[in-house]
């Protein structure tokens, strides 16, 4: 029993897309609890959270925002090309997306390395917190920072793996215009990774004013 049980190819594509959307919703809820904690703890320590944001790597975070937005455009263009039956063009866009994904992770690694070097580790560990008179707020901020951006980075890794697999299938010709919904689902996942980052960016890099 293979996918032959669908009435038609369109139905199969519909089911696959709807299933992917439902999965994306569950992914959003993986982050939802963390947003709740962020909101509650920011309300408890507004000044420490603002200080934490000011301490963050604003430029690296903003660079990553541009990288992910560009990658979203690239994967959308790849899908467009495949739907227009130009698989070689689709492959080029997809490889571009993949390169941007790896670029994002590289920037992220530099950023984490910088924090570790400054003595900022999750859970209020590290020498940075020893210098503070009341470290609780910043400790909470940076724990959430590591958990939320770390979970997001894991999604980037997973997304990049999916993109690489799709690129391989495009390369071998196993993925063609008739099965474009497979690429469409991969693209949907990648867009979600982008959307999550679009929300994380202000929370951890921009809102350092007096909140």
């Amino acid at each position: 029993m293979s996918e032959a049980h669908f009435e038609s190819a369109e139905r199969q594509a519909d089911a696959a897309r709807l299933g992917m959307w439902a999965f994306l919703v569950s992914e959003v809820f993986l982050f939802a609890g963390l947003f709740t904690l962020y909101g509650a703890y920011r309300a408890a320590w507004p000044e420490a959270f603002a200080e934490g944001v000011r301490h963050g790597a604003k430029m690296l975070g903003s660079l990553n925002t541009v990288i992910l937005i560009t990658s979203s455009f690239a994967v959308a263009s790849s899908l467009r090309a495949l739907q227009e039956d130009r698989p070689r063009v689709a492959l080029r866009w997809l490889l571009g997306t993949l390169a941007l994904a790896l670029g994002f992770l590289a920037v992220k690694a530099v950023e984490y390395h910088g924090h570790v070097h400054e003595g900022i580790l999750p859970g209020g560990h590290g020498h940075h917190f020893a210098t503070l008179s009341a470290p609780a707020g910043q400790a909470a901020f940076f724990t959430l920072y590591y958990v939320m951006t770390g979970l997001h980075a894991l999604h980037v890794v997973a997304g990049a793996a999916v993109l690489a697999w799709l690129a391989w299938r495009l390369h071998t010709g196993a993925l063609d215009a008739r099965r474009a919904h497979v690429l469409s689902n991969g693209a949907l996942y990648w867009h979600l990774v982008d959307c999550v980052w679009i929300v994380l960016w202000p929370l951890f890099y921009l809102t350092g004013g007096q909140a």
Binding site: G33, P122, G123, V147
Partner: peptide, 28 residues
């Protein structure tokens, strides 16, 4: 997924001492 994440946070706390819910460190 919300439960999954909450349980993971307890796991981090037990394994790595992150104390995200620890009242002694101001957690709730």
């Amino acid at each position: 997924p919300v439960l999954g994440m909450a349980l993971m946070l307890i796991g981090f706390d037990r394994l790595l001492d992150w104390g995200i819910f620890d009242p002694a460190r101001g957690g709730d």
